[in-house]
């Protein structure tokens, strides 16, 4: 993948996630960070996709964004959902849902089945990514950030 493609992908995923942040009514002060997480998950996805396939790439993209949003939520003292949801949309299996419906109505049962199964696998990859990273206990991060920001009251939630 050349540099220009990557640069265009970065810009487009940034714009897409920022658009979603506004559609979800996220306050202005969080939008930049939401977009940044969207870019990270998308870049992880497209860089890994050629070597490990799209399901595994989706899994790792999800892991990256869940991990980063948990850490950023502590730093920025906001709910994890605010940072996580706009960014994870870039990994949503929108195209797989479309192709499933398309082949279903055009009577191409084999392709419909293949894409339906792919949709399921992509959804499961996202599920696994969220569950695996949510299960990691992060008391050290919380303590570390507490120490750094000791002048403030309490750290954020690590969920």
């Amino acid at each position: 993948m050349d540099l220009q493609t990557i640069a265009l992908n970065v810009i487009m995923s940034l714009v897409a996630t920022a658009g979603f942040s506004i559609a979800f009514n996220i306050p202005k002060r969080h939008i930049f960070f939401c977009s940044l997480l969207g870019v990270v998950s998308w870049i992880v996805y497209i860089l890994l996709r050629p070597s490990v396939g799209e399901v595994a790439a989706t899994f790792f993209g999800t892991c990256a964004i869940v991990l980063m949003s948990r850490i950023l939520a502590v730093v920025r003292k906001c709910p994890v959902a605010v940072l996580l949801i706009p960014g994870i949309i870039t990994l949503a299996p929108g195209s797989a849902i479309y192709y499933t419906a398309y082949y279903f109505v055009t009577n191409d049962t084999q392709s419909a089945g293949r894409y339906g199964f792919l949709t399921l696998k992509l959804a499961l990859a996202i599920v696994l990514g969220i569950i695996v990273v949510t299960a990691i206990p992060m008391p050290h991060v919380k303590k570390l950030i507490n120490r750094i920001k000791s002048e403030h009251n309490g750290a954020g939630d690590l969920r």
Binding site: M12, S13, A16, G19, S21, I22
Partner: peptide, 11 residues
């Protein structure tokens, strides 16, 4: 925002 997001995703 929805429009821009749609366009970016299409790309």
């Amino acid at each position: 925002a929805a429009a821009v997001a749609s366009g970016a995703f299409s790309y």
